[in-house]
């Protein structure tokens, strides 16, 4: 069973092709990264997967169901999104922010015991229970990102979709977020992360979709998907790839602009 399946998806905005004939399928319970340079169409892809934007043509299926047949509530039950950053001027506490993820389960004005338990469990999993009563807007970037991840956990969807989850984070926070994603994947959640930091992504993620100018230029397992030519073509720079002793990790070093 595929949690997400795109067939020949095209997206044109204001006369410009943003996505062109995109097709891929992501098996349930797997962990994937979508990489590509700025303007490749990665964020548009997230909006299409959550039906914020409708594709110009092609078909999107979530857990085998055409997305056009799903209500917004159904989509939220299937996919939780962690945005690259979210700020608010309102005095929401961390608990408030995470609690709002339960909207797809309970839209009534009261909080159920299940909502309360799910929020507390998500805060515990994300190791931020101590921040429960803090105001969200006063948190550091790393803490905010962790709260957004806790929100996705409490939403209890099969798929967690992340838009550059480690951007603006220091190394420690990057590692903590990635470890959490790995743990969630081990708990059978499907994880799809748009990533800019390839060096970080390859340490934790096995499957990649590489996008350039709205087209998929390669996809598949880490062992087959990367080589110097593809990365050089992708970013228009010369790169060197190093593997660690287990041939597991790559290290991409930009040499100079092509």
């Amino acid at each position: 069973m595929n949690c997400v399946e795109l067939s020949n998806v095209c997206c044109r905005v204001d006369g410009k092709d943003i996505l062109n004939d995109i097709s891929f399928a992501i098996p349930s319970g797997s962990m994937w990264a979508i990489i590509g340079p700025n303007g490749a169409g990665k964020s548009t892809l997230i909006k299409i997967l959550t039906s914020i934007i409708k594709p110009t043509s092609g078909e999107v299926k979530i857990n085998g169901v055409n997305i056009n047949n799903l209500s917004r509530l159904d989509i939220a039950k299937n996919i939780a999104v962690v945005p690259d950053n979210f700020n608010t001027n309102f005095d929401f506490t961390v608990f408030d922010i995470v609690l709002m993820s339960r909207y797809s389960h309970n839209r009534k004005s009261y909080i159920t015991n299940a909502d309360n338990a799910a929020v507390l469990e998500a805060l515990d999993k994300a190791k931020i229970s101590h921040l429960k009563n803090n105001l969200y807007k006063t948190l550091s970037s790393g803490e905010k990102q962790t709260v957004l991840l806790a929100r996705a956990i409490a939403q209890d969807s099969d798929v967690i979709l992340l838009d550059e989850p480690t951007s603006n984070l220091d190394v420690k926070n990057q590692m903590e977020i990635m470890h959490m994603l790995k743990t969630l994947n081990e708990e059978k959640k499907s994880v799809i992360a748009v990533m800019h930091d390839i060096n970080l992504a390859v340490r934790f993620i096995n499957n990649f979709i590489i996008i350039k100018q709205g087209k998929i230029i390669n996809s598949g397992n880490i062992k087959t998907v990367f080589n110097e030519d593809i990365l050089t073509d992708l970013y228009d720079i010369n790169v060197d790839i190093y593997k660690d002793v287990n041939s597991r990790f790559l290290f991409m070093q930009a040499e100079k602009i092509k």
Binding site: S51, R72, L73
Partner: peptide
């Protein structure tokens, strides 16, 4: 709704 329209839609709100 206070979170903004995109966030609201991500959480399932029409």
């Amino acid at each position: 709704m206070l979170l903004g329209s995109q966030e609201a839609q991500y959480l399932g709100q029409d």
